[in-house]
Design a protein around this nucleic acid. Structure first.
Length: 156
DNA sequence: GCCAACGTTGGC
DNA sequence: GCCAACGTTGGC
């Protein structure tokens, strides 16, 4: 079982949007970065835990937890010419892009802001801090536990 | 809204 | 295969 951090712009898809469908799976689609694609396709498995992170807002922060319920499978939005995530090079034989399904877990009692994360020396090595542009990032078990504690949640 | 970081594209 | 130009991300 592995830990990840998924970024989203809340204006596009927020943690509350996920919360609105607590018993349903949601496709995590539209990722168009090869490094993130490799994680989605090869590494992210059902049962993995996800820190749900809101970006591109005045105070970016980890706001909650989600769970992976389906591992990497072809991202069909790349093959929809009418959609904004269309990639003419993608095909059923060569999907190029992949997505996973997630399910709502629980909110953090207190969101953990990027500022707090940057201020914690134990979190200085997180790719979130060092390579801030990647949208799907690995998280270590220690980092997971620390962020949950900072957010006032029981680390589990 | 600005701009730095950085991934991608395309000319050569 | 290099690298300049360009586009996107995302913090501020």
């Amino acid at each position: 079982m592995a830990y990840w951090l998924f970024k989203t712009e809340p204006g596009c898809f927020s943690f509350d949007d996920l919360k609105a469908r607590p018993n349903m799976t949601e496709p995590w689609d539209g990722v168009r970065n090869y490094q993130a694609r490799n994680f989605l396709r090869d590494r992210i498995k059902p049962g993995d835990r996800v820190l749900f992170y809101h970006s591109n807002i005045p105070e970016p922060a980890v706001v909650g937890i989600a769970e992976v319920v389906r591992g990497g499978y072809p991202d069909s939005t790349a093959m929809n010419p009418a959609g904004e995530h269309f990639d003419p090079k993608a095909s059923p034989e060569n999907p190029i892009w992949y997505m996973v399904d997630v399910r709502y877990g629980e909110p953090l009692p207190r969101p953990v802001s990027l500022e707090q994360i940057k201020g914690n020396p134990l979190l200085a090595e997180m790719p979130l801090v060092k390579r801030s542009r990647l949208s799907v990032l690995p998280v270590t078990a220690d980092e997971w536990r620390i962020i949950l504690i900072m957010g006032g949640a029981e680390p589990k």
